[in-house]
Design a binder for these strands. Structure first.
Lengths: 206, 206
DNA sequence: TCCCCTTGATTGAGCGTTCAACCAAGCATG
DNA sequence: CATGCTTGGTTGAACGCTCAATCAAGGGGA
């Protein structure tokens, strides 16, 4: 069914997420993927090239594997932001706060990653932000004119990653929940300001 | 002057921050601390026990090494929050976005740390939040009654950690700066709401 | 003498990686 | 049909090396 190559990539994807890159040995991957070292090194010159393939899989999976299920049946663009955050909360919850965002974990584990790896980590963040920015752009008329969708999306990622980090450390969802709660409060205040006319919705109006 | 033990701890502290725990070998530490393996294992049963000593050093250093210099000459409690964030920005800037918060890095590198390690990571976060909470408590009368100093401090840490993570990945301060900028906007709006009386300052007033 | 500390060679496990051999399917030639 | 070559993939033992950790021996102040 699955090709050996695919088995290796998705086993590595899972293990890198569970234990990190450094703590996952090639032998671990081979055992769980039921493959031999020769096969791995037939497809990937080094372990790092396997990591690159994993990061490419994440990049290509953002939309179909993460966003599509999270946003199914959620039309309101701002609610989509929180539906996505709820996905991460769910991941934490289901794993007793062990697994959070694998990209974030790799980003901090690999202190000085080789350029192609660092670039793919950045591309993954970038893709995430681009999609979430779309949500804020879809809610533009409800937000003050000065509110930058790009920056709001960036803040959302920042809060998600920071929250996951702490929740994993505390083994408690509190830190994550607090981040989401205050992000919601902030967005509510932005909406309120826009609708009150306190903060003009359009530059031309100010 | 410095005892061998201290040299080992502070060398390890530096190297763990620069390269991470897993990527720092005992041999690295011994070389840079100018010590021998026997000495290290005389004081610390395992490498992990050395990590614990490092985390204890961080814990004890938060106030004198981090906060005191950051807050010197800054009286306004809310400005202290941003003075602290500016410290982290400086660290990123001076290292070309390589080193951020060592606690955060360790927290994500060590996926399933042994209980004493995890606990010390949490204690370090906790100490940081406790001190920053003091800032928000000091500005209580300028904030709405519903604003929880603990949660605001938690959000500050969340944004700092998430921002550092991204800035390190992008090798650019943009993500960090955006987080700080929007936190400032949020706090401004809270202050505005409190002074407008839109959001009562005290529960008894509502 | 005793005890704390240091020395540094040594150990053995585990790591990423290599390699020669093997296999099955496809294809061309006779 | 048969034969032999090619291609793409698999096998798993073995390699060289680094790692954390050990230990017997020695040093020096009290």
């Amino acid at each position: 069914m699955d090709s050996t190559r695919d088995r290796l990539v998705f086993t590595a994807l899972r293990l890198f997420g569970e234990k990190g890159y450094g703590s996952t040995s090639v032998a671990d991957i081979l055992r769980e993927a039921d493959a031999n070292s020769g096969s791995l090194y037939h497809f990937f010159p080094t372990k790092q090239d396997l990591l690159i393939a994993v990061l490419e899989a994440y990049r290509d999976g953002i939309e179909p594997m993460l966003l599509a299920p999270a946003w199914e049946g959620v039309a309101d663009p701002l609610e989509r932001v929180f539906a996505l955050l709820a996905r991460y909360r769910q991941a934490l919850e289901m794993t007793a706060c062990l697994y959070g965002c694998p990209i974030g974990s790799l980003a901090l584990e690999l202190h000085e990653p080789d350029p192609p790896v660092r670039e793919l980590l950045a591309i993954n963040f970038e893709g995430w932000v681009r999609h979430v920015r779309g949500c804020f752009e879809g809610a533009r008329e409800r937000l003050p004119a000065g509110a930058d969708p790009e920056k709001l999306a960036r803040l959302t990622l920042t809060i998600m990653e920071g929250g996951v980090m702490q929740s994993r450390t505390y083994r408690s969802l509190d830190a994550f929940d607090t981040g989401v709660e205050l992000l919601r409060d902030y967005l509510n205040r932005l909406e309120q300001a826009a609708s009150d006319g306190r903060d003009p919705k359009r530059p031309s109006e100010g």
